[in-house]
Amino acid sequence: MAITQLSAFLENTPGTLYQAVDAITEAGVNIRALSVADTKDFGILRIIVSDIEKTKEALDKHTVISETPVVVVKMNDQAGSLKRILDILKEVEVNIEYVYAFTGGTQGSAYVVLRVDDVEEAESILERKGVKTLTDDDMKDFLY
């Protein structure tokens, strides 16, 4: 089921993040969640958006982009929630490449984005343990 994350390559120079965000804004797309990983030379912008196709079209003119399936988990916005999720994944030895989080949507909920080496395995174990994972459709009409 997973969610489609878009990743964009950004040179590590002033203004490149602005250009990308400007292009997304012009396309009328809302960014639901965002994280930037950086090295000395370049950064990788990772975003979850309200409209994937429009965003791809907008960013394509500026830089390289790729699509990656990520697991997005809804949990209670309270201490111990993330620990529980990580515990489940540890049991089945799913490796996490990177992770970021956002809030919004349902009052009292938090969301964590997990880039894992085995999306199917991660989602199936989470589902069996009663943890809700989100789909692309959930992102379209995400409530704030």
């Binding site: 990743s7 390559f9 090295t39 370049f42 990788i44 982009i65 790729s66 990656t68 990177y98 880039r115």
Partner: peptide, 11 residues
């Protein structure tokens, strides 16, 4: 395009 990865480690 196909050499791009969202993983810093790969790049």
């Amino acid at each position: 395009k196909d050499q791009f990865s969202d993983k810093i480690s790969v790049m």
